[in-house]
C-alpha cells in the first residue's frame, strides 16, 4: 500500500502523463471499469483548462476556428501545467507560446491577437488608481511645467504589433469578417488601459508612442518637449507634446504627477 504522498504523486501523474500506475489503487465500480473512471478525471482536467483558455482567448478562437484553436489549446495545456492557484492566470503564457510554437509562430497575428486579449483582461482587473484630473495641474506655476514627471495609470501597457491584429480582433469581436492580414514594414504601437471600469485600447502614432515610452520612464516634461521636437520637428513641438498629454489625462492614462 502506498503512502498518501505517493498516492497523490501517482494520481497526478495519472492525469498529467496518463501514467497508469494509479489504476492499481482504483477499484472497478459495479458498472464501469477503473480506467473509465480515471478517464473521468483525465477528461475533466483537459476540458476545464480548455474552457478557461476559450474564455480568455475568444477572438483567437474565432480567428483560428474550432479545429485550429483546439490544436493550440492542446499544445498549450501539454506545455504549461498550471502553476497558479487561480485559474485566472493559467493562460497568461499564451502570447509567448503562440509566438514561439510552430505552426502558430508562422502566423504572428495569432500571438498578437492573444497579446491584445491578455492585455485587455489584465487591464480589466488590474490595480486601481485615481486618474489624474486636469484641474490638479491648473494651480501649477509656469516654471513648474518643465520639471513635471507623470505616473502612468497602473493598468496602462504599450504593445507593439507587426500585423493588423488589433483590426482583426475588433472585427471578430463585432462578429464581422476580419480584414485581410497586413504585415507592417515597421512595428506599430498601441496602448491598452482601463477607464471607467472598461478595458480599452487605441493605436499610437510613432511620435506619441515615443513620448509615452519616455514618460513612463519618468522623463521630465521639459525634456519630453525637446524629444518631440527632435522626433517630429521643432515647429509646434510643445503644442504637440501638450496635446498628447491632455489626451492622456482625458483618457485616464495618467495617475499622478510630481514636480522634480
Amino acid at each position: 500500500m502506498s503512502s498518501f504522498k505517493d498516492f497523490q504523486d501517482s494520481f497526478q501523474r495519472g492525469i498529467l502523463e496518463r501514467d497508469d500506475t494509479i489504476l492499481s489503487d482504483v477499484k472497478d465500480s459495479t458498472t464501469e471499469s477503473r480506467s473509465v473512471l480515471i478517464g473521468v478525471y483525465r477528461h475533466a482536467y483537459v476540458a476545464r483548462l480548455a474552457e478557461i483558455l476559450g474564455d480568455d482567448y475568444e477572438q483567437v478562437h474565432a480567428y483560428l476556428g474550432d479545429e485550429g484553436f483546439a490544436r493550440l489549446v492542446k499544445a498549450y495545456i501539454d506545455a504549461n501545467p498550471s502553476d497558479k492557484r487561480n485559474a485566472r492566470w493559467f493562460g497568461r503564457h499564451m502570447p509567448t507560446f503562440a509566438r514561439e510554437t510552430a505552426p502558430f509562430s508562422n502566423h504572428r497575428e495569432v500571438s498578437e491577437i492573444a497579446a491584445l486579449e491578455k492585455a485587455l483582461s489584465d487591464a480589466f482587473d488590474g490595480p486601481n488608481a485615481e486618474p489624474l484630473a486636469i484641474d490638479q495641474l491648473a494651480a501649477l506655476a509656469v516654471d513648474d511645467w518643465p520639471q513635471l514627471t507623470f505616473q502612468p495609470h497602473p493598468t496602462a501597457i504599450r504593445l507593439t504589433f507587426t500585423t493588423n491584429a488589433a483590426a482583426i480582433w475588433s472585427a471578430l469581436k463585432d462578429e464581422t469578417a476580419p480584414p485581410d492580414l497586413v504585415r507592417y514594414p515597421e512595428p506599430q504601437a498601441l496602448l491598452v488601459w482601463r477607464q471607467d471600469f472598461m478595458a480599452r485600447f487605441r493605436p499610437l502614432d510613432p511620435e506619441e508612442s515615443m513620448m509615452w515610452n519616455e514618460t513612463t520612464k519618468g522623463v521630465r516634461f521639459g525634456i519630453l518637449c525637446e524629444m518631440v521636437a527632435m522626433f517630429g520637428g521643432e515647429d509646434d513641438a510643445e503644442i504637440r507634446a501638450a496635446t498628447y498629454l491632455r489626451d492622456w489625462i482625458d483618457s485616464g492614462l495618467l495617475a499622478g504627477y510630481e514636480v522634480e
Binding site: 504523486d9 497526478q12 482536467y45 483548462l49 478557461i52 501545467p81 497558479k84
Partner: peptide
Amino acid sequence: WTGVHGVNLHDLLPIPYT
C-alpha cells in the same frame, strides 16, 4: 486536493479514506 509539486490541476481530486 487540487495538485502537488507546484502544479494545480484545477479539479477537486479524491482522497483515499485512510
